[in-house]
Write a protein that binds this DNA or RNA. Structure first.
Lengths: 348, 348
DNA sequence: ACAACTCTTGGGAGCGCTCCCAAGCGTACG
DNA sequence: CGTACGCTTGGGAGCGCTCCCAAGAGTTGT
């Protein structure tokens, strides 16, 4: 009746490890979870048993009993095809992966493009199927961040939605990056410096424009609004903006595009207008993507530390999760800004 | 004593749904899992309760009780930086995401670069923390696929390790793609057509070379081995190979590079040697990446249906998982080959 | 009218783990 | 020498769900 249940196949359980080590289940659990309240001798015995049996804890059981999942989600707005075109995504993932490498945390990838997927996502979160969320490339009007905040779900956002971002955030220094780019053009002797902006409802795009303005003003150049052409981060948008600029100010001698892709569009138009780069018009982009390296001429661009951002976001998130569970009420929301770097190539 | 336990906060459980619907836990479970053995009336009642309570099943509990995880892993060899540089990864992910959209399956992203991570990975699998695995960009000598096969873990591999791939696989038609590229060069009147290959221990690279050879032979051209330069998929390797080619056969009038990145390296060398593209030497790449579109001149390239591959891999995997659990012993290993497409631009 | 079936249904028995309480032991202190 | 505490330890009580068995209700056939 009370015969020991002998499990022949299958994965070993905590119970079996405990039996093998000659201790109780609770003690084995303590060792495996690194509790200090275990004698050295017992610890060794359990560790030996774990090694011999090749024990690996059952995640589902852990999650169920411990009311946590040991998993975080990376939420990617799939609709952002632009976003995907860059190595951005890969770099972020690499950074996240690196930061997670020493952890037991799993990385869940969630594409939230259409409404259908967003609904699923909301359910994930509602059901607490992850311990935290990394939000990447979120637009200002996205309801998700607020939803997460309401739910009290630890989250970190890449970039910001606006100046008063309430979520913990990790951003690159768009302002300084843009300023450095324009300063560089000024140092090269350019005087009529135009800019092609991204969608200005994206905070980063706004900041790049601010940086441009600041640099222009600081140099005492003419802050002609006709030198500012709004676009949408697309190649076609960049081309269109460049055409407008040439029409309004044919004397333009430098262009700072708020993305490499837009710069590529601008380059095309400049070429067609018979202008040489950089001889007639210097061109600088933003992102330092593959497009920049392979452009002809190679494009000077502002590099963002994407992988570093991924790593930092993850670290911040893990910290948030730890705070949350330890009931640490310190309500400081980290807002980290990472420096950018100007990579000078032949286009300027 | 037997007072109903009233749970005020927290997420609703199956038990609560059942109570609300006035049925038993088992019945509620049946409805939620779509069992047909429930009366229409009961089903409605339960569904109403689910809606009212906003019930979402607890994944961990499900996994624990059902001995499955409803999650699949996408295993990416992080060391493949080349791989990451392309939009390849993004496209695969998008395809996988699309195929998973109608499913309850979660996508786990696993970077398996160094040994440390591979060990973790082996543990994941050992502990059956996923229902299936998608392997992407695997080298011939990677031990992982065999390990998975031994463990009986449903898996699908992108590409193949060799001609006798044993795992279910989804590949693009490298052979036909290469042949089409070379045929196109021949149709353009080129006679001395060289090729720059990828690492030939990668099956796909070998197949592209085969396709090249086939096309050259079919056209009755001189199959001079000196027109074949091995490289390693890198830009620098492409440049080196191009130098060799020019040295051995200065009369070369076309080059088929087995990747866009290598083509970029070749282009550089061709330019430096004073040759014009395509006037003196036509150039064709493979992958149809961003590099191809932004090269000067824009590069003719062979497009692989990457997103489609991701979608197909996922479908195949889901099927494998279903077969496995239904005990369906049909041991046919799907091997799918998707067609490529030649995108003609100005370089040829 | 009764036996034999079929269709539904309820709920017990776990899944493997964490949490936590109480018990066992050893030691320091009055 | 007795009592109080601190450190370890064992194991019960769930976590929420699926599986499955047995019971109840309704049908059909003879």
């Amino acid at each position: 009746m009370a015969a020991a249940r002998v499990r022949s196949g299958g994965r070993p359980t905590l119970e079996e490890v405990a039996a093998r080590a000659g201790v109780g289940r609770g003690t084995a659990s303590r060792v495996i979870n690194g509790s200090p309240r275990v004698s050295a001798q017992t610890r060794e015995a359990v560790e030996a048993a774990v090694a011999e049996l090749g024990y690996v804890p059952n995640r589902a059981a852990r999650a169920l009993a411990g009311n946590r999942t040991d998993a975080i989600a990376l939420v990617v707005p799939e609709s952002e095809t632009r976003f995907f075109a860059e190595p951005y995504f890969s770099d972020i993932v690499r950074g996240v992966g690196a930061a997670l490498a020493d952890t037991e945390m799993q990385l869940l990838l969630t594409l939230a493009g259409n409404d259908r997927e967003r609904r699923r996502l909301a359910q994930y979160l509602t059901a607490h199927r992850v311990d935290g969320v990394l939000l990447v490339s979120v637009h200002a009007d996205d309801p998700l961040p607020d939803l997460l905040e309401q739910l009290g779900m630890p989250s970190v956002i890449s970039g910001r939605r606006h100046a008063a971002e309430t979520l913990p955030s990790v951003d690159s220094d768009n302002f300084e990056g843009a300023r450095a780019a324009v300063d560089h053009l000024i140092a090269r002797g350019r005087r009529s410096i135009a800019t092609i902006t991204g969608r200005l409802d994206v905070y980063g795009a706004q900041r790049r424009l601010d940086g441009y303005r600041k640099a222009v003003a600081a140099a005492g150049l003419d802050p002609d609004e006709r030198l500012i052409a709004p676009a949408d981060f697309s190649e076609e948008g960049g081309a269109r903006a460049m055409r407008e600029l040439l029409e309004r100010r044919p004397d333009v001698d430098a262009v700072f595009a708020a993305s490499d892709v837009m710069a590529a569009g601008a380059r095309q138009v400049l070429r067609e207008s018979g202008r040489r780069i950089p001889d007639d018009v210097a061109l600088v982009g933003f992102d330092d993507s593959a497009v920049a390296r392979h452009m002809d001429p190679p494009l000077t661009s502002v590099r963002q530390p994407i992988e570093e951002m991924g790593r930092t976001m993850t670290r911040v998130l893990l910290q948030e999760i730890a705070n949350r569970s330890s009931g640490d009420g310190t309500e400081e929301r980290p807002r980290i800004v990472l420096p950018t770097e100007l990579v000078v190539r032949e286009s300027s």
